[in-house]
């Protein structure tokens, strides 16, 4: 299972998103600190979920960080996030 698959699985479980985009952006950071030979270190993630309703920006991102705690402590070096509710995404 790739890291992108793991991210998808964990975020799907945590947020039941109506849209979830996970893009491995590692190739753009090759050779940069934090990159590793196999890639899978830098990700762009967009989560659209009702779970974010009534939550501020910081809280929404903390919710995602929490769901990916183990990955962020390990292999993930950078995570660019978009967190929206279905209404905001419409």
């Amino acid at each position: 299972m790739t890291m992108a698959d793991t991210i998808r699985r964990k975020l799907t479980e945590a947020f039941k998103p109506i849209r979830l985009d996970v893009v491995d952006d590692s190739h753009r950071h090759a050779g940069h600190a934090g990159a590793r030979p196999g890639g899978e270190t830098h990700f762009n993630v967009a989560v659209v979920s009702e779970a974010f309703a009534g939550k501020g920006r910081i809280e929404r991102q903390r919710m995602v960080f929490k769901a990916l705690e183990a990955e962020l402590a390990g292999q993930i070096h950078a995570l660019a996030l978009v967190t929206r509710t279905p209404a905001e995404d419409a």
Binding site: R57, I58, Q61, R62, F65, E69, L72, A73, A78, L79
Partner: peptide, 16 residues
């Protein structure tokens, strides 16, 4: 309580 860098503070408060 934020796992990534950069982090911005304004007047002592974490902004993001």
């Amino acid at each position: 309580n934020w796992p990534t860098i950069p982090q911005l503070y304004v007047k002592g408060e974490f902004v993001g």
